[in-house]
Simulated scan of single mutants.
Amino acid sequence: MTMHTTRLLARDLVAEGTLAFHFERPPGFEFKPGQAMDVVLGADQTSTQPEVRHTFSIVSAPFQNELIVATRMRDSAFKRALGALPIGSALTLDGPFGSLGLHKAAARAGIFIAGGIGITPFMSMLRQAAHLQTPQDLLLLYSNHRPEDAAFLGELRQLETLNPRFHMNATMTQMGRSSQAWAGHTGPIDSGFVQRAMQGLPTPIFYIAGPPAMVEAMRPVLAGAGVDEDDVRSEEFFGY
């Protein structure tokens, strides 16, 4: 991997308890949608200590001029330090890496299944697809506890209008704890949900990202929906 020096440009709230961090894109930093990078704080660029280095999926798309990551702001030494970093501060990026990329066969649909902040690698893919207007059917099944927890929900709705080949089916599983209205689905992503959502999509390939327990739980769900395991792709999720 390659080390790059960058600066923190901005941070913004993208869901309750979830921040997006915007970094200056270093010259020569090329990546593919779905890839990840390490963010390194402090002077020791070779450190592998968790309070200094953390891996994040890249939220921004290759056509964009900045690099963006998003994360739940859990109480860890690294995230406390990152959250307190003054705008304009220098830091190091190590990467990119990872191979969770969208397949090239445009005749086959892509179905993304995201749990919570697992949406991050798919944001890069969906932004790029809308920018290029790729002739490929894309579907996102997006599960959160509440609308307040759903990162990038507003932007995903905008991407539906920008890309006629993309659609989103979002579900909220704990609406009893929400103060917002929600007219969509309110149950878990089960086999019936998947079967209904995939109707009419040509020979789809599935991609899963989210908490490890969620990723494992989705495999029997997809099997129950008649999905061949060879058509399911996942990768250790980066970004917690």
Rank of each mutant, 00 (worst) to 15 (best):
T5A: 06
R11Q: 06
A15H: 07
A15Q: 05
E16Q: 07
G17C: 08
G17R: 03
A20Y: 02
H22C: 07
E24A: 09
R25W: 10
P27F: 02
F29I: 01
E30L: 11
E30Y: 10
K32N: 09
M37T: 15
A43W: 00
T46E: 14
Q49L: 02
F56C: 12
S57P: 03
S57F: 09
I58M: 06
A61C: 04
L67N: 04
V69N: 03
V69E: 05
A70V: 01
L82R: 01
G83P: 04
S89K: 01
L91P: 02
T92A: 00
L93H: 13
P96R: 10
G98R: 13
S99F: 10
L102Y: 00
A106K: 15
A107L: 08
G110T: 15
G110H: 01
G110E: 02
I111S: 00
F112H: 08
F112Y: 15
A114P: 06
G116C: 02
T120L: 14
T120A: 15
T120H: 12
P121H: 13
T134A: 15
L139D: 03
L153G: 05
E155Y: 13
E155F: 15
E155L: 15
L162G: 00
P164I: 03
H167D: 13
R177A: 11
S178R: 02
Q180A: 14
T186C: 11
V194C: 00
Q195T: 09
R196H: 12
R196M: 11
A197Y: 10
A197S: 15
M198A: 14
L201K: 12
T203K: 15
Y207K: 10
Y207C: 11
I208Y: 14
P211Y: 10
M214D: 01
M214F: 15
A217E: 02
A217D: 06
V221K: 07
A223D: 10
D228I: 03
E229M: 07
D231S: 13
D231F: 12
S234Y: 11
Y240E: 02
